[in-house]
């Protein structure tokens, strides 16, 4: 079963096989599936690997180096991982005019580079959390901003 799930993650199963596998997956298997995704994420971008991983996951990553064999790392899959990892994200691709404060001792361009990078990664959830409380958002048909922002994310 693990092998099949691994194939699923690698997008090596199609149509009916996927449906059959999904219907058989129970909690443990779903965990495995999640785990493989996280592993892929770690391989793809060790620096940005999320800090909120279960200890169990870390242990498995260490214990199962074979999972990380390069042959498994399909390009398509890596893309999938990067999208899934930050879904729900109100991404900052469209943001403009990020700049340091006027009295910043750091030259503007340097400040910009540093900030954009760091800020991007940490603000996605904040923007969504904020939106929950905006009276204006409440007046609009559901999730206008959300669908729009996911565009920013997947369109990047």
């Amino acid at each position: 079963m693990r092998e099949e799930i691994s194939m699923l993650v690698d997008a090596e199963l199609d149509g009916e096989d996927v449906a059959r596998l999904v219907s058989r997956m129970k909690d443990q298997e779903t965990q495995d599936w999640l785990l493989y995704h996280l592993i892929g994420e770690a391989v793809r971008d060790p620096e940005g690997f999320r800090a909120d991983l279960d200890v169990d996951c870390r242990a498995v990553i260490v214990a199962e180096p074979t999972v990380l064999a390069p042959s498994r790392l399909h390009k398509a899959r890596l893309y999938a991982l990067s999208a899934a990892a930050s879904v729900a994200a109100v991404f900052l691709v469209g943001w403009v005019a990020l700049q340091g404060p006027a009295d910043s001792p750091v030259p503007k361009q340097v400040a910009q580079a540093v900030h954009l990078d760091v800020i991007k990664s940490r603000l996605n959830d904040y923007l969504l959390a904020h939106q929950e409380f905006s009276p204006r958002s409440e007046m609009m048909p559901s999730n206008i901003r959300t669908v729009s922002d996911t565009y920013q994310e997947s369109g990047r």
Binding site: L81, V87, A88, N143
Partner: peptide, 29 residues
Amino acid sequence: LISLDGPAREIICNGDEMQFYYPDARSMM
């Protein structure tokens, strides 16, 4: 909600649960 421009994306909302579909990325959340 389904996007008509750019990469196809779909959001299904049921009460306070949202499902995000990114078919080009073969993923869903």
